[in-house]
Design a protein around this nucleic acid. Sequence first.
DNA 1: CCTACCGATCGGTAGG
DNA 2: CCTACCGATCGGTAGG
Lengths: 207, 207
Amino acid sequence: MDHETSTTSRGGYAKGDARREAIVDVATDVFATLGFRAATMLQIAAACGISRTGLLHHFPSKESLLEAVLSRRDERSATLIPKRVGTDDDDRAALARMVALMRHNADSPTIINLFSVLSAEAGDPAHPAHAYFVSRYASLRSELIESLTRLHRRGGLTAGTDPTALAVELIALMDGLQVQWVLAPDQVDMAGVLRHRIDAALLRPLD
Amino acid sequence: MDHETSTTSRGGYAKGDARREAIVDVATDVFATLGFRAATMLQIAAACGISRTGLLHHFPSKESLLEAVLSRRDERSATLIPKRVGTDDDDRAALARMVALMRHNADSPTIINLFSVLSAEAGDPAHPAHAYFVSRYASLRSELIESLTRLHRRGGLTAGTDPTALAVELIALMDGLQVQWVLAPDQVDMAGVLRHRIDAALLRPLD
DNA sequence: CCTACCGATCGGTAGG
DNA sequence: CCTACCGATCGGTAGG
């Protein structure tokens, strides 16, 4: 949170930044596979081809590395999900992007694992990412509730739909599909099930 | 899996069995909080008020303790969810029990955490519970698909419902609601959302 | 021969 | 980035 360095390279630090980015990529994989607590700095260092103390040169603690992994993820998803909405079509587009995201994630199981494992172990208030996930889900809910409420006011949702309950349901559906998909990729059509549920809530289905 | 001892006490071993049961309860809590990999035998032993070697006397390895925790959970849920179904009412009752289970789980966050954390970290094929969760979800899916298919054939579901997709969706919904609920219990009405989704799929709502 | 442990220690590894 | 370390703790096993 309080690391001034970013992934954008500044004059004279290109090499160090490139190394940091490579480390964050590796750490993402390891945290995704083992979770934060069971992952070790030695494993991550070895996968980077450096020593454990060399790793600590770039990230002074395991938690600082976790912060870097999460903020990198936030940057990436921010580019995929723009903030400015307001029209009916924008809100429908936001739902379409959720489906596209599920389809995209089916090709990058690492990210699926990362959030499944971390959000589960972050349920413990003592977990270093607990606050992050609490506020992450709060943001997801409030943004989706806003979108669905606008859609509902403009008559875009089927009668009797509660925008708040639907927002909670759709977020839960995405998370649960990912857990199930990791254990049986062939049996779970993540994007298809989500798309079907969203279309059932919309008066006019997605394109 | 291959431990002949059960939780039922046999003549002369009541004390040992009671101790084993107490240990399994404590281990359930610790695994639920930390996950399997990050939990330590020392923590579990300390929480039981015995030494680590005393713990190992009862369970020769950490994995054997995990097996005991999971099979205990299976016994408990087996008493809650009987196997013999076949009539239309039985299949509707199975859906009602899913809602009741969500309501019940909201009072025992430990079990929620246990399955959220373990099923997420078991996505790694190298995890000792990987096979368990793969087959657990396969069973859940096939049993629910059976129930929903019977209901559908008897005209109990709304038109255009795919029993297989609905089974995947309902299981995902339950899992995702639990992850979200742990992080914000006041914002997530687990049983309410599930109930609402099930009623939307049924021609005649649950009682 | 059974149970229910104990204190000590094995070779390795944790985060820093 | 590395070698050299620290206090502690890991899962598992020894004899008693």
